[in-house]
Amino acid sequence: MKPIISTNNLTKKYKDDIALNHLNLEINKGEIFGFLGHNGAGKTTTVSILTTLIAPTSGAASICGYDTQTEGLEVQKRIGYLPENVKFYDNLTVYENLEYLAKLSGTDNPKGKIDEALKFIDFTGYENKKLGEFSKGMRQRIGIAQAILHDPEVLFLDEPTSGLDPMGIKKLREIIIKLNKEKGMTIFMNTHLLSEVAKTCTTIGVLNHGNLIYLDSLENTMKKFKDESSLEEIYFSMENK
């Protein structure tokens, strides 16, 4: 099976700093991939390259077989993206924000897609409220809604649970799993919350100072590190290797 996300020696340098060092990654369709790493490990840089927001210094990446640099528009048609601390147009209502983003995504039936997305995230009845009135957790859910308006094949989530209360985290986790199960979306999730990875992901990768130090399924990971008592210890043992 051809991987839906693939990177080949992907490297990003900022002046003398290497943010990402020859990353080779293959993620198959239908997976929920948890990308672990401490702050500044290079996770956001990776997602920024995969979502076409920035160019790599060298190497290549492809989504659904399309190169992120040379076939950016094709990639963008197939991805959804929830940035860390998602920001909207606070002057506009929920519906106006989503309508705007749906139209920019080239969605044929924006109203139908907005209703569907809001229903999916259990957010109906708030369409005409302005974004400024919502809590962080609610904004993250609207963030998910904007990312799935055009039924993307791959969904990128950058620290989606960051800053949420336990209830918000639980709600978001349920949505992520539902998106994978019901809509068949491949999900690429940056996080440093190990508990989230254990409850949500099927595959994990660990990035340390721009280097991929581990990549395997969650199942295999648990088997390999059976001596360790928790995922957290597994993570630290990998980082220390």
């Binding site: 979502t51 076409t52 927001l53 528009l73 094709e74 963008q76 048609k77 991805i79 959804g80 993206y81 940035p83 601390n85 998602v86 920001k87 909207f88 147009y89 606070d90 983003l101 920019l104 995504s105 080239g106 904007q146 990128f156």
Partner: peptide
């Protein structure tokens, strides 16, 4: 300032 541009430029628009 608001950081809304990443939402736009991950969509198929130049």
């Amino acid at each position: 300032g608001n950081g809304t541009l990443p939402l736009i430029f991950t969509r198929p628009i130049s």
